[in-house]
């Protein structure tokens, strides 16, 4: 499944969303940005990564490699001219398409936050789960982190994952004027950020 805004434009942008918990917090901004880009003649395609949202595939068997392959298939299916990766989406971006990275993040940093959330939840429930102990389990057996079931291979790939090498333009959060919505404890929206983001994206795509 994919959310698409397709008016048959020449400029066609594949969007690889933020991953795991950040996906929820970035969804609103992602979709608002799609609408803003649609109004300036850029079509957008936001696929569900296998195992996420409405995909019927089990998340546990997914890896960053399988997601990157899926991203490549989506790029072909929609005939995109450009790709946008959001946060951890940079870890699975197709390497062969001109791309723009928004606030890319390493897999290790994402894992640390997710492991820490689990460790704190365990402590609240009266159990001790150390970050090191959880990571060990994750590497061997996989791990459930904030409701996301990561298989062992996904966990191991995440530990070393850095944004896929590609000739990319990077948009950092500082360019958007306020703090990243992925930081928010609750999913939020920010019309000013969306406006600036869409303007920067359109300039990069039309350059």
């Amino acid at each position: 499944m994919a959310l698409t805004i397709d008016a048959g434009s020449e400029l066609r942008l594949l969007i690889l969303p933020a991953l795991f918990d950040e996906a929820n917090r970035m969804r609103r901004m992602t979709v608002d940005t799609m609408r803003a880009l649609g109004s300036v003649g850029i079509d957008t395609f936001l696929p569900d990564l296998p195992g996420c949202n409405e995909s019927l595939a089990p998340l546990k068997t997914q890896t960053l490699s399988s997601w990157q392959e899926a991203a490549g298939r989506a790029a072909q299916t929609f005939g995109v001219t450009h790709a946008l990766t959001i946060r951890g989406g940079a870890l699975v971006g197709p390497a062969e398409i001109p791309c723009i990275r928004y606030a890319p993040v390493t897999g290790a940093k994402m894992l640390r936050a997710m492991l820490r959330a689990r460790s704190i939840q365990a402590r609240e429930a009266g159990r001790e789960e150390s970050l090191a102990g959880l990571a060990e389990t994750g590497r061997k057996e996989g791990l459930d982190l904030s409701g996301w079931t990561l298989g062992a291979e996904m966990f191991r790939q995440m530990e070393d994952a850095v944004p896929v090498p590609a000739a990319c333009t990077t948009i950092e959060q500082t360019e958007l004027g306020s703090s990243g919505l992925w930081l928010r404890a609750e999913p939020g929206e920010d019309a000013d950020q969306v406006r600036t983001f869409a303007r920067l994206l359109a300039a990069a795509i039309k350059a």
């Binding site: 640390r112 936050a113 959330a117 939840q121 930081l183």
Partner: peptide, 22 residues
Amino acid sequence: DSMAVAGLLTEMEDRLDILIED
């Protein structure tokens, strides 16, 4: 909540260049 605490600690590590142990 606990998710926000995790985000807070991770962001403190990042911006203050410190390491927070269990």
